[in-house]
Design a protein around this nucleic acid. Structure first.
Lengths: 214, 214, 214, 214
DNA sequence: CATGAATGAGAGTTCATTCAT
DNA sequence: CATGAATGAACTCTCATTCAT
């Protein structure tokens, strides 16, 4: 069978993914509630009925979008952190860098944006996120900090609370930009934010008397 | 004015406020979209038509809730900060303390929770918040940090980005608790969070070679 | 308040009944499944939404129609039979006469016709009929026959099965007419049917040797 | 013809019949309207499209079921009756017996049950039944009774109406059992019903003064 | 012959909003 | 001022039917 034949084949196996792409696009533009299934179908280039051929309900589209994104995060990104030994600041720098790289890609932003927007109306999605991402990421980060305190690399901070200090500034920066369109002038400036955030996270904002840091 | 008159007037001027209370309660429980105007009316003890006597639409209820809460913040809490001179860490400690006091009161939480939940679907509310709260608070905080850097109280951090480091951990802590029900065991623990947050904000997490801090 | 005012009043208390009338008419014409709620509304002179103000679903219209008809039957017609003493042929003649009078009125026919048509698709209605009508009528008739046998007025027939012989011919006559439009030429001819039915029911079709009966 | 060929031919000419079997089974279980063509296909072990290869529409399945059953009745069972001479009670006993035998077989019941359930929504089927079964059976029965009256075997009853008295009790018995699940305790009890029915049909329920009957 | 992916018209139901009383 | 009956636009979901392969 030639490649040309593919044109005639229904691209059966790719369809659900295309529909999720379309749903993500339209949900992001107008919000879940304000989007009609018909619009998702049009964007995907199929008919309304075809959507329901692959997804049992409009809600299932939302869940499909999230599940597709959450799976690789939970499987790949997170497990690595648990094994880390040595100065915990190294993986923290990496984590912040990875997050910022992901977030600076508009495509990568779409799902977190959508989740941020709709999560309170989708208990199932909040639970999915909690179970698949947070329930793994937060304990891993907490343990990382705790090991850093134990090894003397970090000051005796509260590991659990310190996790809020690691991710909070990033969340705040994204939220200000995405929700309120408050940006520091020249675009997202994730680099500058990351640098300043890590600087403060590691050394604080207080001026030292005589000594240097970094 | 006779007693009988009271029966008919029933503190008429308080009505809109009672309706906003009812709307806040029901919106918080079920979400804006899932709430029927009828339910707001029932909770307020009036009929559906009466709601429309005071508010032109369901959306106006949402806006009324937010506007009522935003006004005092914008008028009282924020202006004070601009005048502050001296070590900026003093007003920062105060700000964090004030926020935590407010947030530990469930009643005070209701509006921020609701705003957090619905803001993406209400451009008007996002704009209101932006204009009335953030457009005043963020520049004030930024200027505070900038003055601290200039006066030598703070290290040469980026003032704009440092604002994210000040409020981010608090936002993250609240979001984890409210959205994902992830709490550090013994309740909200806002005190512990605030203490750890300020400790890190001021001195960082890195262990020092020989000397102590704080 | 004058009578003229009524014109302006919403005839609130009559509405549900008018809707049931309209539903009965349209369901009878087109069948339940083929009828749109919109059509019922139009016939009732109200909007689609108003139907749902009084009935929670399309099915509820069907149930309302039946319930409204079943109630008086169950309450009035049936209880009388239990008290009867003496020759059971008297109340049987009355019952057949009453049924035929009811059935010869096209309005009275509408509900049984509709029930006959839709009953298999409405388990709830079958159950309603069973519980409210048959569970009362059949034992009453059975007891009536049993008493007749005991008192010597009737031959030693099986009371339970004899009930089928009392009502069956009437049912068959109606079904032939309503379902297959098979009628004995000159209209429904319920009188002739009733007379012949009772004659056979009481004396059978077999010719006697010499003697007469009746 | 090779064995391999058989695999491909799969008794092709039997296919439509298998589909009707499947359709009858599913329609009987769930009702015509509630049955999806897909379900009929699954039960028949073919795909949805194949159904439409043999039947132009879902309705055609219904008609096919009925037509297949009606044909032999119209051709065989009915014509015999017209030729009968002598005491008409003999063929009446036979008819009742035959009907009861047929009806006591659940498989034979399926089609009449289905027809009873759906007939009002299928004018074509009502017409089919009317034309193929009733238009032949009823005149035959009527003539049988008329001849019985003429020959003195029967009392001077109205032949047309007497037909209702012959088939009515059987119909009533079946309807009570199938529609309302009202049965005389020990199953369908068709024998007892038939015996009692014929007893009453021939001799009536009235007690005689002195003589016996049967 | 057979498949099953795709279609799209159509129906039931909800609920914000209006307005006669 | 207050009511609540009435409205009807809008939306989700179903499923008989088609047709490219």
């Amino acid at each position: 069978m030639s490649v040309a034949d593919k044109k005639f084949r229904r691209r059966a196996e790719a369809r659900p993914d295309e529909m999720l792409d379309a749903a993500l696009a339209v949900f992001s533009e107008k919000g879940f509630a304000a989007t009609k299934v018909e619009e998702v179908a049009q964007r995907a280039g199929v008919s309304k009925g075809t959507i329901y051929l692959y997804f049992p309900s409009k809600d299932a589209l939302m869940e499909g979008i999230v599940r597709r994104t959450v799976a690789p995060i939970a499987e790949h990104a997170l497990p690595d952190m648990n094994k880390f030994e040595g100065d915990p600041r190294v993986p923290i720098v990496m984590l912040v860098g990875t997050l910022c790289t992901l977030l600076s890609d508009p495509n990568s932003m779409a799902v977190p944006r959508l989740v941020l927007r709709e999560i309170m109306n989708f208990p199932a999605i909040a639970e999915l996120y909690r179970r698949e991402v947070l329930a793994k990421a937060i304990p891993a980060l907490t343990a990382l900090v705790a090991r850093g305190v134990a090894s003397g690399h970090l000051r005796p901070v509260d590991p659990e609370m310190t996790v809020r200090s690691i991710i909070g500034p990033i969340v705040a920066h994204i939220a200000l930009s995405e929700v309120f369109e408050i940006r520091p002038g020249e675009g997202l400036a994730l680099d500058k934010m990351a640098e300043n955030h890590l600087d403060i996270l590691f050394y604080g904002i207080s001026a030292r008397r005589k000594e240097e840091q970094s």
